[in-house]
Amino acid sequence: MGLFDKLVGWLGLKKEVNVLCLGLDNSGKTTIINKLKPSNAQVQDIVPTIGFSIEKFKTSSLSFTVFDMSGQGRYRNLWEHYYKEGQAIIFVIDSADKLRMVVAKEELDTLLNHPDIKHRRIPILFFANKMDVRDALSSVKVSQLLCLENIKDKPWYICATDAIRGDGLQEGVDWLQDQIKTMKT
């Protein structure tokens, strides 16, 4: 496998990874993914996602296919149908929405206990988004409220982001890329 990887590298073919982008509606999932795309492929107005949409972006060594799921309550039951395909999860939280932090936690717990996720060492990247909003909770506070310290059997990482300006996104994606590379079987 190692040799094959190198070969892929020499040929300039990047390894494909499927990433699920989850989180409540209005948390900024689409905005984040849009920001990660090359600037010429970015769209200007972002509207609430219906169902889900598939986006692609590349990093130095990986080619990501992102399932940008809709976070609206009525579409959240779609998420689990993609758990099997996902090799990594990006979970976006609106740090300014204190009221719905419990809802985000509830959805996260449901995700972590799903049979397709529970026993896998799938890496989870948390974006504590909307840091720019006044009164937004810090990423430490967000990780406390979501009880992230209880996730013992999966690598995870949280970073504070401002998706409009793109702050903090690169840090998270770098971590994800490292995780996926070390995950190699």
């Binding site: 509606d25 209005n26 309550g73 929405d97 009221l99």
Partner: peptide, 12 residues
């Protein structure tokens, strides 16, 4: 003493 049910914030 008072109850109200409905959409608050973004939660129905």
């Amino acid at each position: 003493t008072s109850i109200c049910f409905g959409r608050y914030g973004r939660e129905d």
